[in-house]
Design a protein around this nucleic acid. Structure first.
Lengths: 133, 133
DNA sequence: CTCTGTGCAAAGCGTTTGCAAACGA
DNA sequence: TCGTTTGCAAACGCTTTGCACAGAG
């Protein structure tokens, strides 16, 4: 049992049952669309509103408690913020998995080539997962 | 002067003035949002409709003549399809530049770790460009 | 008790669709 | 000429907003 109550409060968010369930759903699913999240939430709170989902998702993104992942040719998914990682999407079943890749030298190259400072990297790989092959 | 007329036809798209101008705007801008594209188009065709822009953008994406780039915390941009490359976004001015990075070994690692096949990679780096620093 | 969060309904915004007229080949 | 494309208006779907009531601290 994770203590999301405290974590929410640390982000100045009251620990309402709805928020605890959103957090729990994100934890369970790993990556989830708004649509799917609403489905799950609706089972527990049959009168929940999509507005509540959106308001909370936006607050949680602002608080950097969760993050949006933009996926090519698909809807965005949300995940709990965790250590830096990349994503692999299966174009067939849509499943998304995390993968820990070392992008340091590539980012360093990019910074040199472009004269940019770089503070964020989003890598999404697409292909076919083992099950779908 | 690029011969987009022929290129459009090779993709089974009639070379209308509107399409030639969309293509030209993409070429000039490198990366462009729908909104900005409409602005530019409107100067040349004052009665152009957003519907025309959307229809053509969608056809061109389907034909792989252009591609959508999903940008964190910003609207998608479109670019002419060219050799594989990554993108660097300036969080300050919003400017997007192409950068040629070798992701081969990283992709290979990811394929091994995940047992996926990988046929596409989208890397978007974010930071601050030289001008904005 | 106070202030924040929820749920509802309405509004807002970006995108798509249907259709008649215009146009490219 | 024939099939495609354009522009308009309406429809659509996702997201946000305003407000009264409920609930967390």
């Amino acid at each position: 049992m994770n203590n999301y109550t405290d974590i929410l409060r640390q982000h100045n968010l009251k620990a309402t049952p709805q928020r605890l369930e959103i957090t729990n759903a994100l934890y369970q699913a790993g990556h989830i669309t708004i649509e799917k999240l609403y489905e799950i939430m609706h089972k527990k709170f049959n009168s929940i509103s999509l507005a509540t989902i959106y308001k909370n998702i936006n607050l949680m993104v602002e608080a950097s408690f969760i993050q949006e992942v933009k996926v090519p040719n698909a809807k965005s998914v949300y995940e709990l913020t965790k250590d830096k990682h990349s994503h692999i999407v299966c174009s067939s079943c849509g499943d998304i998995t995390d993968v820990d890749l070392d992008l340091d030298s590539i980012i360093k190259d990019a910074a040199t080539i472009s004269s940019h400072t770089i503070d964020r990297s989003d890598l999404v790989l697409s292909g076919t997962c083992k099950n779908c092959q």
